[in-house]
C-alpha cells in the first residue's frame, strides 16, 4: 500500500473517498457506460466528417456541426469528467469560466465579423 492517506485539515487528503465520505465513486459510471459513450463520440465524429463532405448539407452545415460538437463536449464533461454525478460546486466553478469564455467569443465575432457588414449611418 502507498503511504497512508494524510488527513490534513486542508482538504487535500488523498483517497478514493474524500475525508467526510461525500466523494465516493459509487455514483460514477461503469466501464460499460464509458465504452458506450466512447462509441457515441466516435459515431458523432463520423457524422460530423460525413456532413462536411455531403454537398446537400452545405446550407445547414454550420448549425449542424455546432450542435454535434456541443453534444460531444457535453458527453465528455458529464460522463468522463463526472459532472453529472459530482457536486454542483465543480460545475459552478467550471461554468463560471465556460460561460464567460463563450460570451467573450461570441462578442468578439459579432464585433469583428458581423457588425462591420452593416452600414448603419446609411
Amino acid at each position: 500500500m502507498s503511504t497512508e492517506a494524510v488527513a490534513d485539515g486542508f482538504g487535500q487528503a488523498q483517497g478514493g473517498a474524500s475525508p467526510s465520505g461525500h466523494g465516493d465513486h459509487s455514483g460514477h459510471a461503469s466501464p460499460r457506460t464509458y465504452w458506450t459513450i466512447g462509441g457515441i463520440l466516435t459515431l458523432i465524429t463520423a457524422m460530423e466528417v460525413a456532413a462536411f463532405y455531403i454537398p446537400a448539407m452545405a446550407p445547414v452545415l454550420v448549425p449542424v456541426l455546432l450542435v454535434l460538437s456541443a453534444t460531444k463536449f457535453m458527453l465528455v464533461i458529464m460522463f468522463f469528467m463526472h459532472l453529472k454525478f459530482d457536486s454542483k460546486v465543480f460545475s459552478g466553478v467550471f461554468l463560471t469560466g465556460l460561460v464567460l469564455a463563450s460570451f467573450m467569443t461570441v462578442a468578439l465575432i459579432v464585433l469583428f465579423q458581423v457588425l462591420p457588414k452593416y452600414d448603419f449611418m446609411g
Binding site: 464585433l111 457588425l115 449611418m121
Partner: peptide
C-alpha cells in the same frame, strides 16, 4: 469609444 466601433456596439 474613439475607435469607431459603430452605433450598435
Amino acid at each position: 469609444f474613439t475607435v469607431g466601433l459603430g452605433p450598435i456596439a
